[in-house]
Amino acid sequence: MKMIKTDKLTYEYIRRDDDGNVEGITTAVDNVSLDVDAGEFIAILGHNGSGKSTLAKHINAILNPTHGTVWVDGKDTSDEANLWDIRQTAGMVFQNPDNQIIGQVVEEDVGFGPENIGIPTRQIWERVEESLRAVGMYEYRKYSPNKLSGGQKQRVSIAGVLAMHPKCIVLDEPTAMLDPNGRKEVIRAVRALNDVEKITVVLITHYMEETIHADRVFVMDRGKIAMEGAPREVFSQVDKLKELRLDVPQVTLLAYELQKRGLQLPNGILTVQELTQELSRILAERERK
């Protein structure tokens, strides 16, 4: 069974002017069909306004499709009876670290989810401890969230979702408001969830370099899926990505530039090591000739 499956998912909303008259209809997500297997790490890329966040909100049943269907762990999200099951199965982390922490102490915030689903007190404490350890925030359990950095706050939010024992976590631009250090921290925690805890991860972002470890990358534009594939396949299409208002890591761009000037480099180079190795290889071959 697929962890997430969408079939011809379309989401429209009606725009109104100040007097409440209909101005027009905006299609935020347009006929999207995709599957995510259990244990996969997928990334959804797209510029601001491409519909990627709207798509994400369907997985947690915050939004319901106008047309089409979304199944999470086999359950239809538009069926009211499945609502709380789905929200427990697919946890969600949002963009603004300040606006999703409810507790005044880190551990109390992580316990908020389990409290809501009626977990007995002793087990809440166990879950809080293991979740905080999983994101490396256990030492901060007694802190006030206001004293933490952005990256630390986002890790607390991830722990808060983790404590509900979800099968899948959707992260909606969790790094957009963070500095480079905070971004690294959060991405490291997300990768650990997938590698160690085997949780299905859907990461939504506009930073390319955060997606190079994903199993599959989807690029969205105007509500549709414009590109899809392994990171290497997607990143090799530098021109197309630029058209979609995205950019590629500087190494990939440099490799692409060198290819254009006639060097025989493989497509979609993602790291500094890969590129230097390839360049050294070509030079060594030349010398042999």
């Binding site: 890591p249 500087q250 761009l253 440099l254 530039e257 500094v272 090591q273 230097t276 360049l279 050294s280």
Partner: peptide
């Protein structure tokens, strides 16, 4: 920038490159 790392890495591998470039071009 990543290009700084690449050029320095190449230089460390014994190649004669100037490492001061800042753009991909």
């Amino acid at each position: 920038p990543q290009v700084t790392y690449i050029l320095n890495e190449l230089r460390n591998n014994g190649l004669d490159v100037d490492t001061s470039a800042i753009t991909t071009k």
